[in-house]
Design a protein around this nucleic acid. Structure first.
Lengths: 329, 329
DNA sequence: TCAAAAGTGTTATCCTTACACCCATGT
DNA sequence: ACATGGGTGTAAGGATAACACTTTTGA
């Protein structure tokens, strides 16, 4: 407050990770920008600049950009993080005005977009190593870990900013040990480690790593423009974490649903299989849902009771989420 | 990206909640701005504008402002939230350029500031209702709840934006029922409810509530300039939540400490008493700390083993925090 | 000797996990 | 008949919260 008002103009970008679940698969809304360097045109998150004259609040700005670009009226919206360092390692003077991006998470029911530029993309196409619903993804042992090991043996280049953990420890922190100790919430940590190791396409595009290190195998996930994949990773981390202590899932489901649908939706987000019987008891016992009295017939098996979310649970319980541990299924 | 580049200039403010614990009391660093409307000069958080030309990243900008204003070199720093709507209910066109604030949480060891403008203030002076270490604060039943009840009976003014909970339910959500169901993490929710009900000075200053509703009793906490108290509430919420699954406390302690000091520090942050015996066992058993072999003599009682934080615990445990439940002490 | 804090031991209870098993429907 | 999902019972094991109790220092 007592210093030079050295006004370099700043642009504030508002970015939306719009998540839905359809047939047990999580999706995110992307807009494809035609100008692309790569084979497939790069995916972007819906995005626009915050203009205080047009938008009373940041969130209103986000909603209006999303409406304009995708036609969607968002329901649940939550701010994630503000990234000031686009492609963290970009050079100074890269662009002016400087761009600061605020990432948002939005949850909706699934719908096929009408515009041609707008697509529903599967989450796990961007993060194939995050889907443990059918056991540990082979790609981790076959591709990721060897490449990370190789990276960890390379000498530190550039400034070694003080880190509490060494490379080896960071790998174990992010990916666990031999499929053990996997923490599904560390989506962002894993993405940032892969970025730093130069294993995702964005790292090469940002010019941080020499091109030789760039392995753009589709196994390491579909890439996105700018730092959008990082924002999406932040969204996944947040969702997986918050799922456990806030009733987020219900934003993704129709108002009436079966316990099986609820379970499959949770599994889609958390990326790990759940124990059926215990899941049902926990959910029913937890007071988060109540039976509607109606039944669903076309389940593929015996007809199921339809449930709905109990909004009052918010008041009763200290942390009303789905505290469900992974299991063998 | 396909619309009017209607450039209204934006200023990005970087705000720091610098927290320390001294003699079982949590403190926050404030700078007092002399120009004040109220009796005591208003406290502010250390704060400065992000200037991309001078600062490579947001965090670097924050650190350099803090250094300049307080002389402190920050260690642990974490971004909290970006507030686009200063004093949420301020009128459009209030100020131009428009201010967007990014709040940060920083943890340090306690030190008396050398500058005269800089002060260490007690957390609980700003939020007296948050300190449950000696049982439920009387102010809640005596002052807050009656006033909130009164507010809940008043008809809704202005736009009733769709809320999942009614006024009564929100009161119970935030403050529990008769001292029961208190969730120490809901610091921000409580502050925002009090703000909305016009019970904190900032609400009157922001001009949202008619002046008659403004009860500026010191019982409702020392106020801060602008929305700084809201940022501080965000910091407290984050700390209290994160304490349980990340080893934050150790940033506040010297590298060697006794289990008692650890417990008192956790209690200072979480605002609730802990069960001594169980706390010790949980901490020792949890692998978060290790004995150093050294002892501390001047404890006031029997000499205590000195412990230190085990950094490797980060790698071993899924969520290495202090999962400690409140208790009767 | 007493206050204050450091420590240890034990028990009842709850929560989680896992396994076993039966029910109702469509093909 | 059998596959698929719906739904219940129960027992083992671990974590937690509460209690009681001993030990070692400084004043």
């Amino acid at each position: 407050m007592t210093s030079k008002p050295q006004q370099a103009s700043i642009e504030l970008g508002l970015h939306a990770s719009i998540v839905s679940v359809h047939q047990n698969e999580p999706y995110v809304v992307c807009v494809s920008s035609p100008k692309s360097t790569s084979r497939h045109s790069a995916d972007s998150l819906p995005f626009g600049l915050f203009t205080p004259l047009a938008h009373r609040t940041l969130e209103i700005g986000l909603r209006s950009w999303v409406k304009e670009q995708t036609g969607l009226d968002l329901g649940y919206v939550e701010q994630l993080y503000t990234f000031g360092d686009r492609g963290r390692h970009a050079q100074a003077g890269d662009r002016d005005p400087h761009m600061v991006s605020i990432g948002y998470l939005a949850l909706t029911h699934h719908s096929e977009p009408s515009q041609q530029q707008v697509k529903q993309r599967r989450w796990y196409d961007f993060f194939p190593w995050e889907d443990w619903r059918n056991g540990p993804p082979a790609i981790i042992g076959k591709v990721i870990e060897p490449l990370l090991q190789e990276w960890s043996r390379r000498p530190e280049e550039g400034q070694t900013r003080k880190r509490p953990l060494g490379k080896q420890e960071r790998i174990r922190f992010c990916f666990g040990v031999k499929g053990d100790n996997w923490d599904e919430e560390k989506v962002l940590d894993r993405y940032e480690l892969l970025y730093e190791a130069g294993l995702v396409a964005e790292a090469a595009i940002d010019g941080r790593q020499a091109a030789e290190l760039w392995i753009n195998s589709p196994e390491l996930g579909r890439s996105m423009s700018h730092d959008h994949r990082r924002i999406l990773a932040t969204a996944m981390s947040r969702m997986r974490g918050k799922l456990k202590y806030r009733p987020l899932v219900f934003e993704l489901l129709p108002s009436f649903f079966t316990l099986y649908e609820l379970q499959k939706t949770v599994e889609a987000i958390s990326g790990s299989p759940l124990h059926k019987q215990n899941f049902r008891r926990l959910v029913e016992g937890g007071g988060l849902v109540e039976a509607t009295g109606e039944m669903k017939k076309s389940t593929g098996g015996r007809p199921a009771k339809l449930f709905k979310f109990r909004h009052v649970a918010l008041v009763e319980r200290p942390s009303p989420g789905l505290r469900v541990g992974a299991s063998k299924g």
